[in-house]
Design a protein around this nucleic acid. Structure first.
Lengths: 230, 230
DNA sequence: CGCCAGGTTGAAGAGAATCAAGTGATGTGG
DNA sequence: CCACATCACTTGATTCTCTTCAACCTGGCG
C-alpha cells in the first residue's frame, strides 16, 4: 500500500534524544498541571521516532511545540495513525508496560519528557495527580471511540470531520495550518492520499473551504462541512 | 442505511429493570474482584436497553450471563457497535459523567449492577480497587485501539479477525456459538449483513470454517484465518 | 536551472454497498 | 400437528464509491 516508506527514515532520533535536553527546575507545582513540571524538554526533527511500538512505556510526553503522530503499521505496509498531538497535548500514556503505538514527530518538535515512575508514584499519594491521569486516559479513550464512528463514514464525511476537528483544536478560527502530509491524513482517516486530495478539491469547488497552499486550509462555510459529517 | 429499525424496539427494559433484582450479600471481598460484590443482579430480555447514550453513568455493570452490546447511532440510522461483552466482562465504565454509548442485551442476559459512587469512593482509599479500575479502563482503550486497526482492513480480514476474537473470548475451542445477529456483527465490523454473510460462505467454501447453523461456527483451519487477518 | 518530493488529476478497476429475490428457521393460531 | 406469518440469513445482479495505476503539476532547494 505504501510503496515507498522513505518518510519513515527519521528514527535516528534515538541517537540524540538527550543531546539537547534542558533540565527544568522543579518549582512549586500547581495542582492543575503538576504532571508536566517533572520532566525535561527534548527536540525531535521532522519524522524522528520518539518511541516505537512494543518499547517499554517508561515516559510520558507533552508536546511543547510542533506536532506528533502515533501509529501502528501492518506488515504489508498499511498504516493506521492513532492520533495527532498538538502543543499542550499529552501522549504516551499506557495502561500496560509497553507502548501499543509508535510515535514520531510530524515536523520539528519539542516534547517534554516525564518519567513514568515518578508520575505514578506521585499519583499514589496525590489524589489530584491520580485524577489527572484518569482524565487523561478517559480523554484518550473518548477520542479513540470517536475515531471508530468516523471510520464507518464516507470519504466526504471523514475529510470534513477531520477539518472541523483540526479547526477546533488549533488556535486559529477558520484558517488552519496543517502540519501533517496528505499521507498522514489519509492514514488517519483510513483513506488513500488520492481520495483525500479529491475530497479537498471537491470541498473547495463547493466553496466550503479554500486552499491557499496545500497545507493551509480556510474554512469558508462551516455549515456545509457540518452538514457533511452526518 | 438501516431500513427497518425494528430490532431496536426492546427498550421497554426501563420499565422493569429493578423488578427481579436479587440483592447479594456483601461477604468478605477478595482483592481481585472486590468491585463485583457490591451490586445486585438484574435481568434484561433480548434487545432490552440497559442504558442509553448521554444518560448519567451512575452504575458499573458486569455480565453474569448472556451478551451485551454497546453502540452509537448516527442520525441517518448507521450504527457502530462499540463492543460485545461476554459473561465476566465489565462495562459501563466512563471517565465522564455520561455514557458515550448505549447498551443493550443481545440475548436474555443477567447483569450485576454496581453503584458507581460506591466504587469510586472505595477506590479513593483502597489502592487495589483503584488499580482494577485503571486496568479496566486501559483494557477498554486497548480494545478500542485494536478496533481502529481492524476498520482499515478488508472485509475478509475483518470477518476472520472477528471469528478469531470470539473464539478466544468464548470458552469453547474451535466451536463458537455466536449470540449476536449478522446485523450486530456487521455494525461491529463496519460492513453490511450481506457482506458478512458472503465472507462467511467464502470462508466455509475455503473450508476454513463450518457453519452447522447460522449462529454456530466451527473453526476448521485457524491458520487460514490467521493468514487472512493481515 | 533543473531536480525531486509532495500534491493533484485522470482513467480504469476492484471491492463492498445496494437492490431484489429467494431460502430457511421460528413461532403462532387454527 | 400443520398452515401461515414473520424474522433472520443467504444468494444473485447491479451500482457506486474508493482504490489503483499512471501521468502530470507545483513549489522548495541544491
Amino acid at each position: 500500500m505504501l510503496t515507498e516508506p522513505a518518510y519513515r527514515i527519521g528514527s535516528a532520533a534515538h541517537l540524540f534524544p538527550r543531546a539537547d535536553r534542558r533540565d527544568l527546575p522543579l518549582g512549586p507545582r500547581s495542582p492543575t498541571n503538576s504532571i508536566e513540571l517533572l520532566g525535561s524538554a527534548v527536540s525531535f526533527v521532522r519524522n524522528a521516532e520518539i518511541y516505537a511500538e512494543r518499547e517499554p512505556a517508561d515516559y510520558l510526553y507533552k508536546v511543547l511545540s510542533g506536532t506528533v503522530r502515533t501509529y501502528r503499521a501492518l506488515m504489508d505496509g498499511r498504516r493506521q495513525v492513532g492520533a495527532f498531538y498538538l502543543p499542550g497535548d499529552i501522549f504516551g500514556l499506557e495502561s500496560g508496560e509497553e507502548h501499543v503505538f509508535s510515535a514520531e514527530a510530524v515536523v520539528d518538535s519539542t516534547v517534554m519528557v516525564v518519567d513514568r515512575g515518578i508520575v505514578t508514584s506521585l499519583a499514589a499519594c496525590d489524589r489530584d495527580v491520580a485524577r489527572q491521569l484518569w482524565a487523561l486516559m478517559g480523554r484518550e479513550l473518548e477520542r479513540t471511540q470517536d475515531r471508530l464512528l468516523l471510520l464507518i463514514k464516507t470519504a466526504h464525511e471523514r475529510v470534513a470531520s477531520f477539518l472541523l476537528e483540526m479547526a477546533d483544536r488549533l488556535p486559529s478560527n477558520d484558517e488552519v495550518e496543517l502540519a501533517m502530509s496528505r499521507q498522514d491524513i489519509a492514514d488517519y482517516l483510513g483513506l488513500t492520499i488520492e481520495t483525500v486530495s479529491r475530497m479537498l478539491t471537491q470541498l473547495e469547488n463547493a466553496s466550503a473551504i479554500a486552499l491557499p497552499t496545500s497545507k493551509r486550509i480556510v474554512l469558508r462555510d462551516r455549515e456545509v462541512l457540518k452538514r457533511l459529517i452526518a
